[in-house]
């Protein structure tokens, strides 16, 4: 496929990018509860000069069943997903966790080859922007103090940033992009990449531990006096938002796409 031969610069190569078929995958919970995050992702990609399809009728990656031990029940979901997203060069999604699931577990008896290529062609938004588009400037402004929450699946699954446990050189794709936003002030919590405790169905089956973990993330961000907590995983943010709202904290959550798209 032509993708490998293209080197996507910033804006000079828009033409080449236009030849590429890109699909936006909006995970179910973002579609239903956070349409603004989906819109921000869509407009951000448009702003970068891309033409983006939103294949209609998309639902879910199948992770909720698989991570609960019911991967064998996700066949219809997989079939549906593979049917909808085949034929694209890139599938981009603003949810690291769902992308990781697709990459690691998507399979389909009906379309095995298509499933195989979809696994390789699905990208999380920030890695798509840094690794494929090689975005190094952005017309965005967000004059606020923002704490970065590194979602585990993006971090340890997709390797979007260096991990505190491994002794390898540090880097961060999301942070690299946030640095392109003018006026932003970025900070990390003390435990730089500890899990927030969402964990899919874990958040209800292990409610006490889940909330306790979320509370510690929040208290570290509050110590940093952040106005917003951002992440490339809306599911972590949904969980943190729930706790923040209950305790009536002034801190709000914002998906990274919303910040990158803010003018």
């Amino acid at each position: 496929m032509m993708v490998t031969t293209c080197s996507f610069g910033k804006f000079g190569l828009v033409k080449k990018i236009l030849q590429v078929k890109i699909a936006l995958f909006i995970p179910c919970y973002i579609d239903q509860f956070y349409p603004d995050v989906a819109k921000a992702t869509y407009f951000l990609l448009k702003k970068l000069g891309l033409s983006v399809d939103v294949p209609s009728g998309q639902t879910c990656c199948g992770q909720p069943m698989a991570n609960s031990g019911y991967n064998h029940l996700s066949a219809s979901c997989n079939k549906h997903f593979t049917g909808i997203f085949q034929g694209y060069d890139f599938i981009v999604s603003p949810s690291a966790s769902c992308v990781l699931h697709i990459r690691e577990h998507l399979s389909s008896d009906n379309y095995p080859d298509q499933a195989e290529s979809i696994r390789k062609q699905t990208f999380e938004l920030t890695e798509f922007m840094t690794d494929i588009l090689k975005v190094d400037q952005l017309n965005a402004r967000f004059p606020h103090r923002v704490g970065i929450h590194q979602g585990c699946h993006g971090l340890r699954g997709l390797h979007l940033a260096g991990m505190s446990e491994t002794m390898l050189p540090p880097f961060s794709k999301p942070e690299q992009l946030l640095h392109l936003v003018s006026g932003i002030e970025i900070c990390y919590p003390e435990r730089i990449d500890e899990c927030c405790g969402f964990g899919g169905s874990f958040c209800v089956f292990e409610e006490a531990v889940s909330v306790s973990m979320g509370e510690s993330r929040i208290s570290e961000h509050e110590k940093n006096q952040v106005e917003f907590i951002t992440s490339n995983d809306m599911s972590c943010l949904m969980h943190l938002e729930g706790i923040l709202k209950r305790k009536k904290s002034p801190v709000r959550v914002k998906h990274i796409a919303e910040i990158l798209n803010q003018e």
Binding site: Q32, F33, E207, E241, G242
Partner: peptide, 22 residues
């Protein structure tokens, strides 16, 4: 609802993204 015990539910928008996109 174990989610709601210590957390607020997310807001429920009138329109999903896909409805909006249509």
């Amino acid at each position: 609802n174990p989610w709601y015990r210590q957390r607020e539910m997310p807001d429920a928008p009138k329109e999903s993204f896909q409805e909006w996109f249509k």
